[in-house]
Amino acid sequence: MTRPKILVAGTGFAGKGHTAAFRAAGTQVVGMVGRTGHVVRDVAAELAIPYAGTDWAAALSELKPDIVSIATPGGAHYEQIKQAIAEGCHVFCDKPMTTKGSTASELHELATAKGVKTAYAASFQYTPSVQHAKRLIADGAIGEPTEIESISHFNLERGIPFGWSHRAEDGGGRLNNNFTHSLAIAQALTGGDILQIAGDVRDDLGRAPKISGVHDFTKRRAFIPDDLDDPSLEWGESNVEWSYTVMARLGSPLARQPVSVLFKHGGLVPRFHDDHIAIYGTKGAIYLKGHYGSGALYVHDGSDWIETPTPADLIEAVPKGLGETEQCWHVLVNHFLRDIRGEAVPTYPTFAQGSLYQNIIDVIRKSGTWAVISEVTP
């Protein structure tokens, strides 16, 4: 395939970021589709994309892209992806893959039957620090991995305007938009399969103000009302989790026993110490600062924690001058395109992983593992 043609769905932060990643990899972005005519026309003009439209099926038919990049909110993914697969397009999809496990599984099966390649952007595993930790663990720096803790507290503002992130049917919720990355990182660090999962979720937000004009998800804080007690405000009801606690067991080729993992995320509560990912083993431990482990890395040598710099080759593997999200998109896009060309590439997240994650999220949201103590026989 020479200079593949890319059609992008979505005009916000992800749409712009996917466009830049595919262009940097040498493809031609031939079109962009969005929900609102004047918005998609403005963004396409800003990015020098020749086609702008609001009809996804028409764009597929007219442009005949080789690859589609799905950068819309999760609630829009299903039909867009299904139509693209039917046209024989390879699909790069941001997370969440869809809004529920059944539709994600269907899309995975359709893509497999059609023989198209897929990529699922649970992509924060590609930060240099996480890749450094992965290398250290594989080299035996901590012995056999035994336990991981992934802890984050975002302290998100309760006045963030009501939108897709507040609604399950639109792909919202912290499991879809935080846990997917954290679970992928744990799997990358251990090379492990998910054996068992249990969890609990909580909607501790309840509602959010309805404010017009929000387009770019990353700029939504600028629209928070000055007075949340203003009686003229309209409110939308949240129906998704803003906090979760998940326990998992991962089977790893690096360990004789399953690796125990704790994922703890509070979307609305403040942190006291650093958000972090810690990996413990039979001979040592690794501590990564940051909610996705993208900060400083420390190795415990048996007596103390020692900050360990990232190797130069891992730093050079990501593009310079970009945010972490954009850097990771670039890495994943490169793996995806090389795979499409038939080159040997490292394992990367596809719809197989994406559909598994949506089914796991369905299980966690049921919170069905509680035992009622009064009903337990002593």
Rank of each mutant, 00 (worst) to 15 (best):
G88A: 06
A188W: 02
I277K: 07
E343R: 04
F223I: 06
Q358F: 02
K64N: 12
N178P: 00
C89D: 02
A296W: 04
K366R: 15
M32E: 07
T218N: 14
V318E: 13
D274N: 14
T118I: 07
D193P: 00
S252I: 00
I194G: 00
A14I: 14
G31Y: 06
S123H: 15
F22M: 07
S182W: 01
G53Q: 05
L262Q: 07
P319S: 09
M32Q: 13
L356T: 02
S165A: 14
V68Q: 05
L107G: 01
T325Q: 11
K117A: 14
Y292N: 13
G75T: 08
D230R: 06
V8F: 02
G31V: 05
A113T: 13
S152T: 14
T308L: 12
G101P: 04
Y280T: 10
M247D: 05
P253I: 01
D301C: 04
A86Y: 01
S123T: 11
S123F: 11
D301W: 07
S238Y: 00
S243W: 04
D274E: 15
T180K: 09
A138G: 10
E343T: 03
K16G: 09
H38L: 03
A285C: 03
P128E: 12
G293M: 03
G191V: 11
P346S: 08
Y120N: 06
G26S: 08
L136N: 07
G284Y: 04
H77V: 01
A48D: 14
I197N: 01
I360P: 00
L110G: 04
Q257A: 10
A255K: 01
W56A: 07
N239T: 05
Q131N: 12
G251P: 00
K134D: 06
I49R: 06
T103E: 15
D216I: 10
W235R: 07
A344D: 14
I148P: 00
S212N: 12
A20S: 13
V259A: 01
L110F: 10
R365M: 12
S374C: 00
S105R: 15
S367R: 08
P4M: 13
